[in-house]
Design a protein around this nucleic acid. Structure first.
Length: 195
DNA sequence: CCTGGGATTTTCT
DNA sequence: GAAAATCCCAGGA
C-alpha cells in the first residue's frame, strides 16, 4: 500500500510524556497516532485534544476519586486510558503527570494519513476507525507494538495555529466547564467542531 | 444556525 | 436507578 510522502516516523520517547499536561496536549497536535494490527498499519495525525487535570477538575473522571475504572489516570505517564462512553463508544486518552497525580489527554480528532473505512473527526469515531477498544486499556505507548505516538521531522505546528477552547460534553462540570482546555489546529477540516 | 431525543451498557450511588 | 469526556438524526428558526 502506498503511503503518503512523509519522512520517517519516530516514536515519541518516555521523556516527552513527563512534561506538563497542557504543554504536552498542545505539542501532541501534529503528532501521529499509530495503530498496528498484524501486518496492517493505520496512521492518523492528531488535530484536536482535550486536557483533564487533577482531582479538582469536575469534568475529569478522577474528580470522584480513584476507582477500578479510573485508576489508570493516577498511573504513570505514557499509558493509554481507554473507557466506554454512553454505552457505545470508546475514547482514547494519554495518561500524563507523575504517578498518583490524575491527569490525561483525550484524543478528539485525527486527520487520516492511511486509508480509513470510517471517519476520524471525533473521539468515539476515531476509536472505531482504528479499532481501539478497552482491550488496549493500560497499553504502554512507549513500548507497545500495537499502539503508539510518533513524530515526523517535517511536521511542525506553529503556536499561532493552535486554538484553545472550552471542552465539549461536560456541562455538568461547574466552573470547570469554562476552562479553555481543548486545543485544536486552526482551520483543519478534521476537527470535530467549531473550526 | 440551533435544540432535543434515542441508542446502549458500564460504573457508581 | 441515574449519569455518562458521543454520535446521528429530526425539526424549528
Amino acid at each position: 500500500m502506498a503511503f503518503f510522502i512523509m519522512s520517517k516516523l519516530i516514536r515519541l520517547k518516555e521523556n516527552l510524556y513527563k512534561q506538563n499536561t497542557f504543554k504536552l496536549a498542545k505539542s501532541l497536535l501534529g503528532k501521529f497516532l499509530v495503530r498496528k494490527i498484524g501486518k496492517k498499519i493505520l496512521i492518523g495525525k492528531i488535530v484536536e485534544v482535550e486536557a483533564y487535570y487533577g482531582l479538582h477538575d469536575k469534568a475529569s473522571h478522577a474528580s470522584r476519586g480513584k476507582t477500578e475504572r479510573t485508576k489508570l489516570m493516577f498511573d504513570k505517564p505514557g499509558l493509554a486510558y481507554i473507557y466506554l462512553i454512553y454505552g457505545m463508544y470508546n475514547c482514547l486518552n494519554i495518561v500524563t503527570e507523575k504517578k498518583d497525580f490524575p491527569a490525561a489527554i483525550l484524543i478528539r480528532a485525527l486527520e487520516p494519513i492511511s486509508k480509513f473505512k470510517m471517519k476520524t473527526n471525533g473521539p468515539g469515531k476515531l476509536c472505531q476507525a482504528l479499532k481501539i477498544d478497552r482491550k488496549l486499556n493500560g497499553e504502554n505507548l512507549i513500548t507497545s507494538k500495537k499502539l503508539y505516538l510518533a513524530q515526523d521531522s517535517k511536521t511542525k505546528i506553529k503556536k499561532s495555529q493552535i486554538i484553545s477552547a472550552k471542552r465539549i460534553g461536560i456541562d455538568y462540570a461547574g466552573k470547570y466547564k469554562h476552562k479553555p482546555w481543548r486545543f485544536y489546529i486552526l482551520s483543519n477540516p478534521f476537527v470535530s467542531r467549531g473550526n
